[in-house]
């Protein structure tokens, strides 16, 4: 490999490097600044509090890698919490039946959106926008109010702590990490995953190389739908309720996590590991702000917006340089 190639390759990793440095320095500064910040549990709490976001962001990574976008994720999460709470509480269905059903519903919703996007060549953002309206609206047709969940298996999931030495995580964290692992294997070791990257790199080329572009795209939105539904299930474990106003703006957090994690919004380049880092950065911002005490919660949004700005401009400069 010549020096030039090395430079090019490193340049592609710049956003990921920046994110890692950001994460480490935020944690270091936090530890130096606040008592009780430097602890393993603070780190694990990041995962516990953001397990559902992590799962949703995994699905979003798939979509963004193809060069698409999915605005429906937050609404599908909310609908999943709502349907779960409604079926379990109002109709007494067993959770073991409800959860698979909810997952199937989310997957199907994603599949349909992917199919419409591909078949009729309508921009992803407008199709998933319609999906978002529909899912949120359906929440309210079930109930305007929040439905709290008292089912013992849900409360058990909410309260179980899986010990890790002196520390602990929740079952949701384990599930989320499994999803990340599965996502990683699919993206890097299956033809589906490689097709995702190929479509993001050049859809036209992918078609001419004989790859199944339509099927891949539909599958990707189905995966995002599945992840949103699973995120919704994890959120019911966390909130113990179903509500149409759950996860408002989650799509923005998920997109922010993906972008901060170094995935190009134009598709074709990025890693799931980056998305995990992105989610941790978002979580850490919240943690720092809550430790600070004097800073109000809206600073989270401002900081996320600022980070988005930096990363998007960075991406733009990198891709322009490459041409």
């Amino acid at each position: 490999m010549n020096a030039n190639a090395l430079v090019t390759r490193v340049r592609g990793q710049i956003p990921l490097l920046v994110t890692s440095v950001l994460l480490v320095s935020m944690f270091t500064v936090g530890s130096a600044q606040y008592d009780g910040f430097f602890s393993g549990q603070v780190l694990l709490n990041l995962l516990i509090d953001n397990a559902f976001l992590l799962v949703v962001a995994v699905g979003m990574t798939f979509v963004v890698l193809t060069g698409g976008i999915d605005l429906s994720v937050g609404a599908v999460v909310a609908l999943s919490t709502m349907v779960s709470a409604w079926l379990v509480e109002r109709h007494g269905w067993p959770p073991l039946l409800v959860i698979p059903l909810v997952l199937l519903m989310g997957t199907a919703a994603g599949w349909v959106m992917g199919w419409v996007i591909h078949t009729f060549e309508i921009q992803p953002f407008i199709v998933t926008l319609a999906g978002m309206f529909l899912a949120r609206g359906l929440c309210y047709t079930i109930s305007i109010e929040s439905i709290s969940i008292t089912d013992p298996s849900y409360t058990a999931m909410a309260q179980t702590r899986i010990p890790l030495g002196d520390l602990f995580v929740s079952p949701s964290v384990v599930i989320a990490l499994l999803v990340v692992a599965a996502g990683f294997v699919v993206l890097h070791y299956t033809r589906l995953g490689r097709n995702v990257y190929a479509i993001g790199g050049s859809e036209h080329s992918a078609l001419l190389m004989g790859l199944r572009v339509g099927r891949t795209r539909t599958t990707v939105y189905a995966i995002s739908g599945f992840c949103s539904a699973l995120g919704g299930v994890l959120l019911t474990f966390y909130m113990l309720s179903g509500y149409g106003l759950h996860a408002v703006g989650l799509e923005l957090d998920a997109i922010a996590a993906v972008v901060i994690g170094g995935t190009l919004l134009t598709g074709g380049s990025g890693y799931l590991l980056g998305t995990v880092l992105g989610v941790l950065v978002l979580g850490l911002i919240q943690t720092v702000i809550s430790f600070q005490g004097t800073l109000s919660s809206w600073w989270t949004r401002i900081v996320i917006g600022g980070l988005l700005f930096v990363f998007i401009v960075l991406q733009r400069l990198i891709t322009v340089r490459r041409r």
């Binding site: 033809r191 490689r194 097709n195 993001g200 790199g201 050049s202 992918a206 001419l208 004989g210 074709g268």
Partner: peptide, 19 residues
């Protein structure tokens, strides 16, 4: 216009679809 994917490795571009 080369109809390959610029973001993938050389090896992948040769084998994608029949890895």
């Amino acid at each position: 216009e080369v109809n390959l994917c610029p973001n993938l490795s050389v090896a992948e571009n040769i084998f994608i679809g029949r890895e």
